[in-house]
């Protein structure tokens, strides 16, 4: 196995080729950025102002991890907006994470709701998709199958909550390594939103039946609300991302790092299991792509990246998850 000498991609990843200089195809063909037009602040302020009569103007997908906590703090301080923090509890959030959600939203004076689906249903779905065969290869290079599934459920939930509550802006605290976009603020047509979920929705509902349909956006609901599609806002995209400073800053609002997660999650115990499944099946770390993006963009050094992906799983959490999955799926 060859590893790129600039980032951490290795040639076990199907899209990665290492050239004779030891560089991967992404490091050797990086496109020059023309920069991002910085006109979003005005647009966001206008959206907030135009929706002042609504109960909330921003809905944040709040995992309780460090990045979404920092995003929450950032948007609270930056905008004169009423914010709703929505947490999808996949049943595996660490106790510290759940405490962090309460403490941080209290300290920032932000309304918060936590939505949890029944454990048996969610574990069966995670187990069914965990080997990654139902996801595009591109999705599997960027995250584990379980993470992809969880993120998809979160997106469906957040879109639904935003639409029914008439909230104009959805905020995701993705790092610059997770989403490479020229548009930190974007409004997608409902057909594009649905298209992204269609395949997995069909797979899950075909396997487990109509009782899972409510966890995915309904075509008719989206069509009826075509005119009410919310904007997506990625506040990290235009900001310098430095993990150490992010953690220092959120500690000031009461956030505490959980001790029982792996090196790449600051909220979820399931990530240890998801990472281990991914590495065993594919031979590369599911965070290698994100971390390599951060290295390529100058947000992390290669050494810092190596440390992060060295910690694949927390052994105690991994064992606990294996037992729970075994108990429910046999």
């Amino acid at each position: 196995m060859q590893v790129c000498k600039k980032c951490l991609l290795n040639d076990n990843m199907p899209s990665v080729r290492i050239n004779e200089d030891g560089l991967c195809n992404l490091c050797s063909t990086q496109y020059e950025s023309r920069g991002i037009v910085n006109n979003n602040e005005e647009e966001i302020s206008s959206l907030i102002k135009a929706n002042r009569e609504e109960k909330y103007q921003i809905i944040l997908a709040y995992s309780g991890g460090k990045d979404s906590t920092y995003s929450l703090k950032m948007i609270k301080e930056r905008y004169d907006a009423s914010i709703l923090a929505v947490t999808f509890d996949n049943g595996f959030l660490s106790d510290t994470c759940l405490k962090n959600i309460r403490t941080v939203t209290d300290n920032l004076d932000v309304d918060s709701i936590i939505i949890k689906y029944p454990a048996k249903k969610i574990i069966r779905a995670f187990k069914y998709i965990e080997d990654g065969k139902f996801f595009p290869r591109q999705s599997m290079e960027r995250a584990s199958a379980i993470c992809n599934m969880c993120i998809m459920l979160i997106k469906n939930l957040i879109y639904y909550e935003a639409i029914i509550r008439r909230i104009p802006i959805i905020c995701f605290g993705w790092t610059p390594g997770q989403v490479m976009t020229s548009k930190p603020l974007i409004k997608l047509n409902y057909t594009m939103v649905l298209k992204g979920f269609e395949n997995i929705k069909n797979i899950i509902t075909s396997r487990f039946g109509a009782r899972y349909e409510k966890y995915f956006l309904d075509d008719a609901f989206m069509r009826e609300n075509e005119a009410n599609m919310p904007y997506l806002y990625y506040p990290f995209v235009k900001n310098n991302y430095k993990e150490d400073s992010v953690i220092e800053e959120i500690k000031e609002i009461g956030w505490i790092p959980p001790q029982n997660t792996d090196g790449n999650s600051s909220n979820c115990l399931l990530n240890s299991y998801a990472n281990q499944c991914h590495v065993s099946k594919f031979g590369y770390h599911p965070y290698a792509f994100e971390i390599s993006n951060l290295i390529r963009e100058g947000y992390l050094t290669r050494e810092e990246g190596l440390t992060k992906i060295g910690n694949v799983a927390n052994p105690c959490s991994y064992k606990m998850i294996c037992e729970q999955f075994e108990k429910i799926t046999g």
Partner: peptide, 15 residues
């Protein structure tokens, strides 16, 4: 998308 070449994040990076 149906053939699994690109996902929703891929469309964003293509843009």
């Amino acid at each position: 998308i149906d053939k699994g070449y690109v996902d929703s994040i891929g469309i964003i990076s293509l843009v």
